[in-house]
Amino acid sequence: MTDSRAGNPVARASALRKIYGESPDPVVALDEVSLQVHAGEFLAVCGPSGCGKSTLLLTIGLLLRPDAGDLEIADQNIAELSPSRQSSFRAQNIGFVFQDFHLIPYLNVLENVLVPTLAQPLSDASARAEMLLEEMGLAARHDHLPSELSAGERQRTALVRALMLRPRLILADEPTGNLDRENADCVLNHLAHYSEVGGAVVMATHDEGAMMRAGRRVLMDKGRIVGSDDGGNKR
């Protein structure tokens, strides 16, 4: 594996701050969080429940607007984008994988993985979908509904959906939280593979096994990054 941290980062967060609620009991979900994720990097954000992992992923994923701080994704300052432009930017550059899969229940596997083309048309959509499903071992399942799949198959379907538009960044929020070890390994292998071929992956997890599969780990607590195995941003 090459040094994944050379060149411009895919995502750069500087002093991000996010507060939920108002005085007198505000909850500081992100407190001066700074982070860089490069292409080819598989970063695990670890920490206990409520530490701000998901908020960090949602903020980097442009689903939450930070109260303070700067965010750049693929060299684009996000503050400069209008909300509607943010949607298309997200479709082009960011893929999501959720703990609960969030597949659309009435669409079959193939249709589910094609859903991102609603946001961003893709000329080779069907061929790419078939290829990715094949890679994930879901070729025989492409006309099955999510309710007919195992949890692992559902998460792999969600992963294919996240990969459909060739995003530069994959944000995975507890992707193995509902999976057994075998399926979790399978999903982690695919995420690791994606980073190996040049994608950037940020995974929020409190699963130690998952953490160990990442190339780099940061530890969060009470909205702050409190540790990192590369020593960066430690406060």
Binding site: S87, F89, I94, F98, H102, I104, P105, V115, A119
Partner: peptide, 16 residues
């Protein structure tokens, strides 16, 4: 609502 949230996260805009 989850479907709407997911579609929105995937990048499907408000008008669509």
């Amino acid at each position: 609502i989850m479907e709407i949230g997911t579609l929105s996260a995937i990048g499907v805009g408000f008008s669509r």
